Simulated scan of single mutants.
Amino acid sequence: MEHEKINYVEYAAHDIKATKQFFTKAFNWVFTDFGESYTAFTNAGLNGGFYQADKKSSAENGGALIVLYSYDLEKSYQKVKAAGGKISKEIFPFPGGRRFQFIEPSGNEFGVWSKEEAAS
């Protein structure tokens, strides 16, 4: 752990089970339950957790947007859809790469970006 550096992130989740299933299937995150109303995740680049609550985080509402990196944006896009994620912003270019944003089963918004150019 580094002094005064971001160490952990927490999200609300109204359906912890569905959220766990989604992130396990789409990104191979690993979960450890602490009772019925909290689960911690690892293997995600930054450790964190989901707590039981009827809240959600979205960029539209001013929430922080956690963005994952992908070596293959189209493959990650397909994995998100296959796992039950809803695309909130289709793939778009931005200075430095391309990205898309999605909503996981509990309503939290995340993004995925890549440096790569679009496949021709």
Results as ranks from 00 to 15, higher is better:
Met1Glu: 14
His3Met: 13
Glu4Met: 15
Lys5Ile: 10
Ile6Gln: 10
Tyr8Asp: 11
Tyr8Cys: 10
Val9Tyr: 06
Glu10Tyr: 09
Glu10Ile: 09
Tyr11Ile: 03
Ala12Pro: 15
Ala12Asn: 07
Ala13Asp: 00
Ala13Tyr: 00
His14Pro: 03
Asp15Leu: 00
Ile16Asp: 00
Ile16Pro: 00
Lys17Gln: 13
Lys17Tyr: 05
Lys17Phe: 03
Ala18Val: 02
Phe22Leu: 01
Phe22Tyr: 06
Phe23Cys: 03
Lys25Tyr: 05
Lys25His: 12
Lys25Thr: 15
Lys25Arg: 14
Ala26Trp: 01
Asn28His: 15
Asn28Ile: 07
Trp29Ile: 06
Thr32Trp: 01
Thr32Gln: 14
Asp33Thr: 11
Asp33His: 10
Phe34Tyr: 15
Gly35Arg: 04
Gly35Lys: 04
Glu36Asp: 14
Tyr38Met: 04
Tyr38Phe: 15
Tyr38Cys: 04
Asn43Leu: 08
Ala44Val: 06
Gly45Phe: 04
Gly45Thr: 06
Gly49Cys: 07
Phe50Thr: 01
Tyr51Ser: 09
Tyr51Val: 08
Tyr51Ala: 07
Asp54Gly: 11
Asp54Asn: 13
Asp54Ala: 10
Lys55Asp: 14
Ala59Gln: 11
Glu60Cys: 01
Asn61Gly: 12
Gly62Gln: 07
Gly62Pro: 05
Gly62Tyr: 07
Gly63Gln: 08
Leu65Ile: 13
Leu65Asn: 06
Val67Ala: 10
Val67Gly: 07
Asp72Leu: 06
Asp72Arg: 08
Glu74Pro: 06
Lys75Asn: 14
Lys75Leu: 14
Ser76Pro: 05
Ser76Leu: 04
Val80Ser: 02
Val80Cys: 08
Lys81Thr: 11
Ala83Gln: 04
Ala83Trp: 01
Gly84Trp: 01
Lys86Thr: 14
Ile87Glu: 05
Ile87Met: 05
Glu90Lys: 13
Glu90Arg: 07
Phe92Leu: 11
Pro93Asp: 14
Phe94Met: 10
Pro95Met: 09
Gly96Asn: 09
Gly96Thr: 09
Gly97Val: 05
Gly97Ile: 06
Gly97Gln: 04
Gly97Ala: 07
Arg99Gly: 15
Phe100His: 04
Phe100Gly: 02
Phe100Ser: 04
Phe100Leu: 09
Phe102Gln: 00
Ile103Gln: 08
Pro105Ala: 00
Pro105Gln: 00
Pro105Asn: 01
Ser106Tyr: 00
Ser106Val: 00
Glu109Val: 06
Glu109His: 05
Glu109Gly: 02
Glu109Ser: 03
Phe110Leu: 11
Glu116Asn: 15
Ala119Trp: 06
Ala119Met: 12
Ala119Glu: 15
Ser120Val: 10
Ser120Pro: 14
